[in-house]
Design a protein around this nucleic acid. Structure first.
Length: 420
RNA sequence: GUGGAUAUAGCUCAACUUGGUAGAGCACCAGAUUGUGGUUCUGGCUGUUGCGGGUUCAAAUCCCGUUAUCCACCCCA
């Protein structure tokens, strides 16, 4: 357990059997998102720092203190802290006619240099989508419906969807000013953090966990009051579409999404099965300037570590694990048999049969290895079998053993695998 | 970035308070009459006590530093 053998802080290896769960989650996600007309887009993990500073906002925590930034060849580069900006950078580079109406999804690692904690890693993994269709409540509702659909496909159980609007980006300053004015008179009642937030990030006062702050917030007008009628109407229409689709949600005027590029519809999905970091997924509509283009879209991201955490907390992770493919174990007695088994394995594999063997050892130890690996059948050959051109085939579950000619082995195993 | 807790065999943990040869269960390995796994029985292996320093005749144990993990804050998926 020396530190040289450990991964970097906040980053971890994923080994079997948990990695099988990850594969299954990704497979279900791809199937679901492709059913909604999304195509995969793979963007680099490394981007120019400016891709994020200009879209997420210079003052956001993610940009200010959580990015892995480094310099290479005089360029300021970074590991991507989220998925949307890189996808938009791709879109900006391809021109409007080609990317308008695009539906992309991504799966991959993101990096934020935060203090690790339950449900939070420095390298974490997200699946997300971005939809560049013209803005409409119908689109936002469809995207949120997809996200809920996906969480259901994973068997996540009850999750709470909180929905809100941030209004148009052009109106953000007016909302902030309105809230500041409303909170100024009550500043003395707020916690230290919130007094700081009033000037730095007013919206964050709304979702402070401090009870005293919540008491103040309850008496302050909700942010929607300071938005345009059109913004309120957009939210109402989106909600109506969600009702029609049977998607359950709760409008929460205090819901805040931190990144600057959000406008109009925003939402967050939480599970009660988790600890403090209970947000499993989030999403929203956004607008950003990149590469001389203005990009408008709607998307979501889901934290895979947290999905795994919920499934484990609910004891549902095993339900998603596919049964392992049946394995054949070859046992050989003596050097000659072991050599011949090495060649036989390649014949089995050519017939799409999964197989392994031990490099040597006693019959007992080879059988033990077969059992430990969970082999369904053992193919055993010693000197007798080699001279007679046969092999012993043992069913590990029942213990039954038969001897058959070598050329019958592949058909017999194929038939047994098919009938499992 | 801030605060609290923790670090002992491959795994889960004991021994620490009150310094005196580091232990259990599981796992692993080998046997139980000739070439057969799982259950059982018998035997065996396993550690620079995270790392570095200090105090002491003597440190897993007390002190300092460091690294990592866990939990929470901040923030976010």
């Amino acid at each position: 357990m020396s530190s040289a053998n450990q991964p970097v802080q906040g980053m971890s290896d994923v080994a079997a059997p948990e990695v099988c769960l990850w594969q299954r989650l990704e497979q279900l996600a791809r199937e679901t998102m492709e059913r909604y007309g999304f195509e995969e887009l793979r963007t680099p993990v490394v981007e120019f720092e400016s891709v994020f500073t200009r879209s997420l906002g210079e003052t956001t925590d993610v940009v200010q203190k959580e990015m892995y930034v480094f310099e290479k060849g005089g360029r300021r580069l970074c590991l991507r802290p989220e998925g949307t900006a890189g996808v938009m950078r791709h879109a900006a580079g391809r021109g409007a006619q080609e990317t308008d109406g695009a539906r992309w999804y991504y799966v991959g690692p993101m990096f934020r240099s935060e203090r690790p904690q339950a449900g939070r890693k420095r390298q974490f993994h997200q699946v997300g989508v971005e939809c560049l269709e013209p803005p409409a409540p119908r689109v936002d509702a469809e995207i949120l419906a997809l996200q809920v659909d996906l969480l259901r496909a994973w068997g996540l159980g009850e999750c709470e969807v909180r929905l809100n609007t941030r209004g148009e980006i052009a109106g953000h300053a007016a909302v902030a000013a309105g809230l500041r004015a409303a909170l100024a008179a009550r500043e003395a009642e707020l916690c230290d953090d919130c007094r700081r937030r009033i000037s730095e990030n007013v919206l964050r006062v709304l979702d402070c966990k401090n009870a005293a702050c919540q008491a103040v917030v309850a008496t302050v007008p909700p942010p929607t009051v300071f938005m345009s009628p059109a913004a309120r109407e957009y939210l109402a229409q989106t909600a109506a579409h969600l009702d029609a689709l049977g998607v359950k949600y709760r409008i929460d005027p205090r819901l805040v999404r931190g990144l600057d590029y959000y406008e109009h519809t925003v939402w967050e999905i939480a599970s009660t099965a988790l600890g403090a970091q209970n947000a499993v997924a989030g999403g929203g509509r956004y607008r950003m300037q990149l590469g001389g283009r203005e990009l408008v879209g709607v998307g979501f991201a889901i934290g895979l570590e947290r999905v795994v955490g919920v499934l484990q907390a609910l004891g549902r992770d095993r339900d998603l694990l596919p049964p392992p493919p049946p394995l054949v174990w070859l046992v050989g007695l003596g050097e000659a048999a072991l050599d011949r088994n090495l060649a036989l394995m390649q014949q089995l594999r050519a017939a799409k049969i999964a197989c392994r063997m031990a490099p040597g050892g006693s019959l007992k130890s080879q059988m033990r290895a077969a059992n430990k690996a969970g082999a369904a059948w053992v193919v055993l050959r010693g000197e007798d079998e080699l001279t007679q051109g046969v092999a012993a085939l043992k069913d590990m579950a029942s213990g039954e053993q038969t001897t058959l000619p070598l050329d019958r082995l592949v058909p017999e195993l194929t038939a047994r695998i098919a009938s499992r």
